[in-house]
Design a protein around this nucleic acid. Structure first.
Lengths: 232, 232
DNA sequence: CGCATACTTGAGAGACGTCAAGCCGAGTGG
DNA sequence: CCACTCGGCTTGACGTCTCTCAAGTATGCG
């Protein structure tokens, strides 16, 4: 999005110099963990979630390569959310001192982290509005669009057919529904000719109609970075 | 929270040098507004909300003195949310160049803005989990606790009795409920001896029980700022 | 081949929404 | 001072969306 200087590139490379693999299903951070480590997701798909004390789970966000994980450590000693791998992943851990260094030495990178925070915030508020004010069908449709669009940022030639890689229970935990009802909503979307499914593969038959159903907004377009401070 | 240097104080004062009053009910920013102004809320209570295209509204967050408003301008050219005054307010506008200057000149203040973003993020994810996975009664209870705790940060001697200053419709728009159902939930909380109400005044009779009902977490405690870079 | 995990479908229940009516207090204008 | 309106609160009856429970069907894996 923004051409970086050699010094900025070097600073980012230092954040990512260590690598750590993570198995599908593995937890990178659990709620209330202490340690304050943060990560760059390099490969794979993850999710962040919270557990309520009746045992139910709310998935907050799906994470894709390039995302920053665990930034809540900047404010809290205990992790407020769990980070789990949906597929085999590679992450690059770094600590808060590394962020302190970036902020002190690379103001433009610090500003880009703030931009990242705002994009994530907008995505969270979109889901908040979806949970509060839209129907089950709309919420499921919006998860489908979100997963495809975010996968497409990693693989730009991804078309209208893709591997969702979520169980119906995970879709339910993201949308505030039960797995049973997610199933019914998927079938309805299928019967209405909006999507098709075969063996975990999802195909958008009528993407326009799906987006209309879902009220979906892509928060990775419409960015305006003209204000960034000069590189240093 | 953190003792600031004279230079840092001066930089913050520069952000707040202009002041602008706002009447109860007035809109400071509307969705899709262009302009990218941001604000510090100095006095009063505000809310941020989005409108869905069926006309329903979701309130995302309530805002209190000291809060930063409209930071989404850091990422977007168009405002993604509306900012409305719940009471008469005073705000201090600043522009993105001011943020660029803070980031370039005052790394520790930049880091504090990141901390602020993470606190806000945690509050949003709490509400997300509440909407997705808790009952109507729990959501209403959690709004009551949130409003009291945040008012108490402005006025530390505020006790268990306070002016809520929200209509039942506003509570509904924040919790994803109808005003009618909010009314029923308030009455239930009252009948269970958790709260009392008289003429817009709310009193917590059994705060412990209310917090248990609500699953409420105060996101302004448990902060860990030990990592901040040195002042410059 | 047996087991676990995920998906599918039906029937019935419950939480929350919709519609409608009435009430109350604060302005406001005659 | 009194009608009048208006926004907000309250309550009942009824409808519907989503959940729960339960059973059955793939699919993959040791």
């Amino acid at each position: 999005m923004v051409p970086l200087t050699a010094r900025e590139h070097a600073a980012l490379d230092r954040l990512e110099e260590r690598e750590r693999p993570l198995r599908r299903g593995g937890a990178l951070v659990r709620e209330k963990d202490i340690g304050g480590e943060m990560f760059v997701l390099r490969e794979g798909t993850m999710m962040s979630s919270v557990l309520l004390d009746d045992g139910s789970r709310q998935i907050l966000r799906f994470l894709f390569p390039g995302d920053l994980l665990g930034m809540s450590s900047l404010a809290y000693g205990e992790a407020p959310e769990t980070l789990t791998a949906l597929t085999d992943c590679m992450v690059a851990p770094f600590d808060r001192a590394a962020i302190a260094n970036v902020v002190a030495e690379h103001p433009r990178l610090a500003a880009l982290i703030m931009v990242y925070n705002q994009i994530e915030r907008a995505a969270l508020t979109d889901r908040l509005a979806a949970l509060g004010r839209t129907s089950a069908k709309a919420r499921v449709a919006s998860i489908l669009l979100e997963m495809r669009n975010r996968q497409r940022m990693v693989d730009p030639q991804l078309g209208s057919s893709f591997a969702l890689r979520l169980t119906q229970e995970e879709i339910g935990d993201a949308t505030g529904l039960t797995a049973v009802h997610v199933n019914r909503m998927l079938r309805q979307l299928e019967e209405e000719g909006l999507i098709a499914r075969e063996a975990g593969r999802m195909t958008f038959i009528n993407e326009r109609g799906l987006a209309r159903e879902a009220n979906y907004i892509d928060r990775y377009v419409g960015l305006d970075l003209s204000w960034l401070p000069p590189a240093q």
